[in-house]
């Protein structure tokens, strides 16, 4: 992965983040009912979008790994699941911070919260497999299979959890209905935040991916050196 692209991406992430921070804290009007707490929404929603996107990427990388082979797909899936878990954790934390003053509780088994939490558990299991097992092609196949199975499960989880808890708190309903973001500046802030977080995601993914690629190459080199040494010893 070329260094200039990486640096450009990092720099644009920085700029976008600063603009988003300014808009969130200075520019956008305070929401009438919830007050200042509502501003966490501009971080919460982009995190959720990024987490879902990266879990989708894990499944796509898994399919390509099983189909075409190639360590590059495995490294992509590995990087995506780690970055996705980071943002999924942030979604849960920012959601809790917001829920305490607004709903009066850190956690409630609402459909969205439950879905996100189940996703977090699923990919947590996937990460534990990655962490405990060695880096063999066999484990890469296991990871690809789990990534695909988990992605297949997501729609069923969403449907079942929605049926399980049909009563959405009013805040979420108005937010969904578009009434929560009356002011056009709120929509603009949300869009800029989403762009900033997408850039951050791309940058982090690229960094981790580049590192994993380098590790793969180092492993191949180490094997080659061991082979040369072995031959020299035999001769």
């Amino acid at each position: 992965m070329s260094k200039p692209i990486q640096n450009a991406l990092g720099l644009s992430t920085l700029v976008a983040m600063l603009v988003a921070l300014f808009m969130v804290f200075e520019w956008v009007p305070t929401e009438a009912e919830q007050g200042i707490v509502q501003r966490i929404f501009y971080f919460h929603v982009p995190c959720a979008w990024v987490a879902f996107a990266s879990f989708g990427l894990v499944a796509v990388a898994g399919i390509f790994y099983l189909w075409l082979g190639g360590q590059i797909w495995d490294d992509l899936g590995h990087a995506a699941v780690e970055v996705g878990m980071l943002f999924c954790t942030l979604v849960l934390i920012t959601g809790s911070l917001w829920a305490k003053p607004i709903w009066g509780t850190w956690w409630t088994w609402d459909s969205r919260l439950t879905t996100t939490f189940v996703l977090w558990l699923m990919y947590g299991g996937y990460l534990i497999l990655r962490a405990t097992a060695e880096d063999t092609p066999q484990v890469s196949k296991f990871a690809a299979v789990i990534g695909i199975v988990a992605a297949l499960d997501v729609p069923v989880v969403i449907v079942s959890v929605r049926l399980w808890r049909t009563i959405h708190p009013a805040v979420l309903v108005t937010r969904q209905g578009g009434h929560g973001l009356e002011d056009p500046r709120m929509v603009a802030t949300l869009l800029v935040s989403i762009a900033a977080f997408t850039l951050l995601f791309a940058w982090l993914l690229m960094l981790r991916f580049a590192e994993l690629r380098m590790r793969t190459r180092l492993g191949a080199l180490a094997r080659e050196i061991a082979l040369i040494r072995f031959r020299a010893g035999a001769a």
Binding site: G124, G125, T132, A133, D153, V157, S160
Partner: peptide
């Protein structure tokens, strides 16, 4: 995989949640 016995419940229970509900 290494640490397998612990891994199975960790993998399977979250995936089974929709059917469980």
């Amino acid at each position: 995989a290494r640490g397998g016995e612990l891994l199975l419940p960790l993998l399977i229970v979250p995936l089974f949640v929709p059917a469980l509900i």
